[in-house]
Design a protein around this nucleic acid. Structure first.
Lengths: 213, 213
DNA sequence: GGCCACAGATTGTGGAACAATTCCACACCG
DNA sequence: CGGTGTGGAATTGTTCCACAATCTGTGGCC
């Protein structure tokens, strides 16, 4: 049996978790300066510990550090977003390919279920945008997971965090009605026409994001 | 005009560079323990500085840190290598697709040149394996660069470091004679049949690596 | 042989200090 | 008036030291 390590929380890990949450919640908005003294006082940690956490977040793409000028919450402009989507397509397309290969040309139930859940949530007026966004991420996440390719999944996860940073800023409520049907159709289309249909899907999403901004 | 930042070397950056080189040179073999005291004494830096460097290398996949048990040079087993190759294919296939799209269905001269250079070097008996390996990396690197997708390139670069960690261990001299012709053929095949031919190419390379070990 | 306790080594974190750099306001000068 | 120094406060980058927590290995004991 293979070992699976208990999640032991070092101070640095805890800091990374807390800061990541605050960033993705929008509590720390994109572009916000992260001053060491303020954060060390707030969380009662040593400067080194905080700095280690900031470096970790930088590796995740959530924070940018300029030498001698401090750290800021990352802010993506349109161009960077497009580049990020190119990477996303690379990962997701191959993940879809592998998922199809592993499941005899179909996508597993987990993906279909996630799409159905998204449709259900998005259709209900009372659901908050955050929940819809989470369900949407779950669809794409399920497909990446279905590939059974841990490294692709890991890369996708990091990218997803960065992406959330952006989608949190603007809340494209206008696509909400289409989100459910579109993704059920997407899953079906992938099974029928292959992973390349993701190209159009992501292109469309990118357009929606950039013009909405 | 956009700014381009001078490469300023902090102590941490310098450490990362030096350690990365030593790891990729095989001077620090895979699995080697990296004891903080030894390294701080050798390079005359503070422990925090060294620890920051180790964390950075961990983010690159070159070092693994186990809580309370220290850092080691990463060691990939066969399974991890396969997972890494799945990621590599995802990045490289899409990069090839984009490169073709940007250059009217062909690959740019930089890629052809790199392949030719590889063939030239590999054919000469006197060329060392390290140079052949570098030329080989240059071929794939040129194709990824030709895509004009910075984020894919960045992800590929990190992956490439990890991969070098492995290919440095075993030196598959037996494929050397085929390396040049194979890659010239690969470039032509990509132009003729599309980026999917990379799948077989990388599969073959993976098989060669794992059986050779 | 297997289990336990203990000492030594190593890592994780905190704290203080100082140099280097940036930032900002203000005076100066053509 | 715009551009150029100048000085000081704020912030970051790094060092050194201290100590708790954890791991590792050794030897004794049953």
């Amino acid at each position: 049996m293979s070992i699976d390590p208990l999640p032991r929380v070092s101070a640095v890990d805890a800091l990374v978790t807390v800061l990541r949450e605050r960033i993705l919640d929008g509590d720390l908005p994109a572009g916000e300066r992260l001053v060491e003294r303020e954060l060390t006082e707030r969380y009662d940690v040593a400067r080194h510990t905080l700095r280690a956490a900031l470096r970790a977040l930088q590796a995740d793409g959530l924070v940018r550090i300029e030498p001698n000028r401090g750290a800021r919450v990352a802010a993506l402009d349109g161009e960077e977003l497009r580049e990020l989507f190119a990477l996303r397509l690379a990962l997701e397309r191959e993940a879809a390919f592998l998922a199809l290969e592993r499941h005899d040309g179909r996508l597993p139930a987990s993906v279909h279920d996630a799409a159905a859940e998204l449709a259900r949530l998005a259709a209900r007026r009372r659901t908050g945008w955050a929940d819809v966004a989470a369900a949407h991420n779950a669809v794409h996440g399920a497909m990446v997971a279905a590939a059974g390719a841990p490294r692709i999944a890991r890369a996708y996860e990091a990218l997803d965090g960065e992406l959330a940073l952006f989608t949190m800023q603007l809340r494209p409520v206008w696509t909400r009605d289409r989100l459910g049907p579109d993704h059920i159709a997407l899953v079906a289309a992938i099974e029928q026409d292959g992973p390349d249909v993701l190209r159009d899907h992501l292109d469309e999403a990118l357009t929606a994001l950039t013009t909405g901004a």
